[in-house]
């Protein structure tokens, strides 16, 4: 029987997560927390809220919780028109420069793999330093393996075709004994930061930040805090990409302007 936490249960869980994991979930959207805790409990075979809290207090389940709590990116090259816009309108500005790109809330390999493929296409992979932050070591380790999830592979391939590149999917991904992996050399300039972006930013300020579909799980207060934190690490004239159905908070609309409204790319 699946455990679906009540609002009272959530009130019990959230201070424990903050105390033990230093994870502030108070300002996640409440309905999301109910769904996500239920999902995590199901994934971890949690029998009761009390037993979950006890395990977290003991230090067990901590990274497993962080791994499952994070909503994975749905697929590679989600919204192909976004990636086309990034390739055709944003990246050409950096042809002669070293480029820093930050993914503040790495959730799976999808966004990173999409990015390195685009950079390779544009011969920018060698001159680009990529930073990826995640509080979950397990997410980082999974991403470093470069394995693609079989269930999202087909839609990722279809998205790749829609990019209308000159190359093929197989130029970047190899399949061996049922596992599809990215060419590991594409991760050469990727630095992983095992911290929440709320607690630690990248070593150098970023030219481009990819933060798509992460703030939809926050309430307005946390969204504002997240934007403030991220904008601190974006260079002047740099870019922030958010999900196509997300909006920048009112408090920050003066700090950046819509560079591409359809794809929700903002310039600082």
């Amino acid at each position: 029987m699946a455990v679906v936490p009540s609002l009272n249960d959530i009130r019990l869980i959230t201070p424990v997560l903050e105390d033990i994991l230093k994870l502030d979930v108070y300002n996640y959207a409440l309905s999301f927390l109910r769904r996500r805790f239920a999902y995590v409990f199901n994934q971890l075979n949690v029998k009761s809220v009390d037993s979950f809290i006890e395990e977290i207090r003991k230090g067990n389940l901590v990274d497993d919780f962080l791994f499952h709590f994070q909503v994975s990116d749905t697929e590679m090259f989600r919204d192909p028109s976004f990636w086309r816009t990034l390739k055709n309108k944003v990246l050409p500005r950096y042809n002669a420069e070293n480029l820093n790109i930050w993914i503040p809330d790495l959730a799976s390999s999808h966004e990173l793999c999409s990015l390195v493929v685009i950079l390779k296409e544009d011969n920018l992979i060698e001159s680009t330093q990529i930073y990826c932050s995640s509080p979950s070591l397990k997410i980082i380790e999974e991403v470093q393996k470069g394995c693609m999830l079989t269930k999202t592979l087909e839609v990722s391939k279809q998205n790749f075709k829609r990019l209308e590149l000159q190359t093929s999917f197989e130029d970047y991904f190899v399949s061996e004994v049922g596992i599809t992996k990215i060419d590991s050399s594409l991760f050469k300039n990727v630095k992983f930061i095992n911290k929440s972006f709320f607690h630690q930013g990248p070593e150098e300020n970023a030219d481009i930040v990819l933060f798509r579909n992460r703030m939809i799980y926050y309430n307005s207060k946390l969204q504002n805090k997240a934007e403030d934190e991220i904008l601190k690490y974006i260079k002047k004239d740099g870019f922030l990409a958010i999900g196509i159905k997300e909006r920048i908070c009112n408090n920050n609309v003066d700090l950046c302007h819509a560079y591409d409204h359809n794809e929700q790319i903002y310039q600082v």
Binding site: A29, L30, S31, F32, R35, R36, Y39, V71, S72, D73, T74, R78, D79, N213, I216, Y217, G243, I244, K245
Partner: peptide
Amino acid sequence: APSNYHLFVEYDSTISLSTEE
């Protein structure tokens, strides 16, 4: 409901979107 997003109705009469499974 937009494509590739779940759509939820929230307690405060707002819409929330999600890319969950």
